[in-house]
Amino acid sequence: MSLWLAALNAAVAMVSVGFAVTGVVAPAALAGSDAVASTRYYAAMYAARAVPLGCAVLIAAFLSISNGAWIVLLAGAGVCQVGDAVIGLWRRIPGQVAGSVLVGTIHLASMTHLLATK
């Protein structure tokens, strides 16, 4: 994968990690309402997926991994973002939808580029 594309994917993955950590530390800031025990629980569950996956994309940007490994990693990250966008639509949170669509598009378009140039 090209350096600029790896850097772009790493940057948007770190944005996802930032939101995941914010969700755990200050869930009311993202939920738009008071945080209850279930809010904290689900924020932690989201972070348990988003933090390792985002960090894996960041680490991959600094390593010389194969395009096949990038394809698998970006497919996972992209599908997770699509799921986040669906949840945002269901909960009517436009910012979550827009952010997830943007990040998911970058991951999945990068994956598609790698598949096309394979």
Rank of each mutant, 00 (worst) to 15 (best):
S2Q: 08
L3G: 00
L3A: 08
L3K: 12
W4Q: 07
L5K: 12
A6W: 00
A7E: 05
L8Q: 03
A10C: 02
V12Q: 02
A13R: 01
A13P: 02
M14Q: 05
M14R: 00
M14H: 00
M14T: 01
S16R: 04
S16H: 11
V17T: 11
V17H: 07
G18N: 03
F19H: 12
F19E: 13
V21S: 07
T22C: 12
T22P: 03
T22A: 14
T22Y: 03
G23E: 05
G23H: 07
G23A: 06
V24A: 05
V24H: 07
A26T: 14
P27L: 09
P27H: 05
A28L: 06
L30I: 13
A31P: 11
S33I: 12
D34T: 13
D34A: 15
A35T: 11
V36L: 07
V36G: 14
A37F: 10
A37M: 09
A37N: 09
A37P: 01
S38A: 13
T39M: 11
Y41D: 08
Y41S: 12
A43H: 10
A43E: 09
A44R: 11
A44I: 03
A44F: 03
M45L: 15
M45V: 15
Y46N: 15
R49Q: 13
V51G: 09
P52K: 10
P52T: 06
L53R: 05
L53M: 14
L53D: 06
C55Q: 04
C55T: 13
L58P: 02
A60L: 02
A61D: 00
I65E: 01
I65C: 02
S66Y: 05
N67C: 00
N67T: 09
G68M: 05
W70H: 01
I71L: 02
L73R: 01
L73D: 02
A75W: 12
A75N: 03
A77M: 10
A77W: 03
V79K: 03
V79F: 07
C80K: 10
C80I: 13
V82L: 13
V82I: 15
A85Q: 07
V86L: 15
I87N: 12
G88K: 08
G88A: 12
G88R: 07
G88P: 08
L89Q: 10
R91G: 02
R91Y: 09
R92F: 08
R92G: 01
I93Q: 15
G95K: 12
Q96V: 12
Q96C: 06
V97I: 15
V97T: 14
A98W: 04
G99W: 09
V101Y: 00
V103T: 11
V103E: 01
V103I: 15
G104E: 08
G104T: 08
G104R: 09
I106L: 12
H107L: 13
H107E: 10
L108G: 02
L108C: 04
S110T: 11
M111R: 10
M111A: 12
T112F: 11
T112L: 15
H113E: 03
H113I: 05
L114C: 03
L115R: 05
T117G: 00
K118N: 11
K118W: 06
